[in-house]
């Protein structure tokens, strides 16, 4: 009766593909969960210890992947990607970079698109910005200062230092247990604002348990356990990085743009426009007059916002869980991590 085997076992034959398909699905769905679930305990430390580690900000030779994400649309062209602002406004924002640091002042950030990339090559004394899509190399040699800020966007470390330096005086500090960041155990420094009228519930800075460098920053709205903005490493490897990774000379045929030191900001050109800060800490409000160029760039985004009547006429309101902004018809922006009432109050006092 062997002849019947094939027929009798035909259901059994399908066990092969079914096993492969189901294990592939299970592995691809469950693996990330397992990776996330693993925890580790670290020896307890004081908040002050964490603050001092963060402020030490020792450059270390490393490579990794950094993701900056917000739960809300961000009306700002991202640092490395010259994306269409209108598209940035639709939904949440998430940008991922590959970063390298050699521990001696050289930093490289790379943002990969499907068949192109943009790079930031930062070496002591020179900053090159490369965009393969436009085949353009931009030199920021003499305006390093402004670019340091941009570099901060690709490095949670510098951002953490600035937060601790500028805001720790206005917050209650605590250590809230250990978490896993980029698959490594990390301490968490929690900053809870002293100001009662701030939209921000807490800022959490994760500090690597072994190397003590900041690896993630999260901003939580009041009464929420999901971060509205986060910025940190997805993967992280500490290893010496060869110099070739950081070296850059504009390739033949590239458009080379030299940016002078006169224009203080990357998007500048409109002369010096002062920012006024009203208040301190977590409920301060910034007042900034936009240049004509900035206003035209923002025009499309502003029109998609809801209108609001202010003591200075009609304006546009931009709200997020952690900060709000009003764009006035005269081109002034009033913004801060506070509610609309406080913003309108500031507008009234202008």
């Amino acid at each position: 009766m062997k002849m019947l085997n094939v027929k009798a076992h035909s259901k059994l034959l399908f066990a092969g593909p079914i096993t492969i398909a189901s294990s592939a699905i299970v592995i691809s769905l469950v693996m990330p969960q397992i990776a996330r679930a693993s925890t580790s305990t670290l020896t307890p430390v004081s908040p002050q210890q964490l603050v001092s580690w963060i402020q030490a900000d020792r450059p270390i030779s490393l490579t990794g992947t950094v993701t900056g994400a917000t739960s809300f649309p961000l009306p700002m062209p991202s640092v490395l990607k010259s994306s269409n602002p209108a598209s940035v406004l639709s939904g949440s924002t998430s940008e991922t970079f590959n970063v390298w640091s050699n521990g001696a002042g050289s930093l490289r950030a790379q943002q990969v698109t499907s068949a192109g990339e943009t790079d930031l090559y930062m070496n002591p004394g020179s900053v090159w910005y490369w965009d393969s899509n436009t085949f353009t190399a931009t030199n920021e040699a003499s305006s390093g200062a402004s670019k340091i800020g941009e570099a901060g966007f690709s490095n949670p470390g510098s951002t953490a230092v600035q937060i601790v330096d500028k805001l720790s005086a206005y917050a209650t500090l605590s250590v809230s247990g250990s978490v896993m960041v980029a698959g490594r155990p990390a301490y968490t420094l929690s900053l809870v604002p002293n100001a009662q009228d701030s939209l921000i519930g807490s800022v959490k800075i994760a500090v690597d348990g072994l190397t003590h460098i900041p690896v993630r920053i999260q901003v939580f709205p009041k009464n929420s356990s999901t971060p509205a903005a986060s910025f940190g490493f997805d993967t992280l490897t500490f290893a010496p990085q060869p110099d070739s990774i950081f070296s850059f000379t504009p390739p033949p045929g590239a458009n080379v743009v030299e940016r002078g030191s006169a224009s203080g900001t990357a998007s500048g050109g409109g002369g010096s426009l002062k920012t006024k800060v009203i208040g301190t800490g977590f409920d301060s409000v910034w007042v900034q007059a936009l240049s004509a160029k900035q206003r035209s760039a923002m025009g499309g985004i502003v029109k998609s916002l809801t209108t609001i009547s202010t003591p200075l006429g009609a304006g546009y309101l931009y709200t997020t869980p952690i900060f709000q902004a009003i764009v006035l018809s005269n081109g002034t922006v009033v913004a801060g991590p506070v509610d609309t009432t406080r913003l309108l109050q500031v507008v009234g006092e202008l």
Partner: peptide, 11 residues
């Protein structure tokens, strides 16, 4: 057919 520019800007 000269040197090839990589996506990262190096050749």
């Amino acid at each position: 057919t000269g040197r090839v520019v990589l996506l990262s800007g190096q050749t």
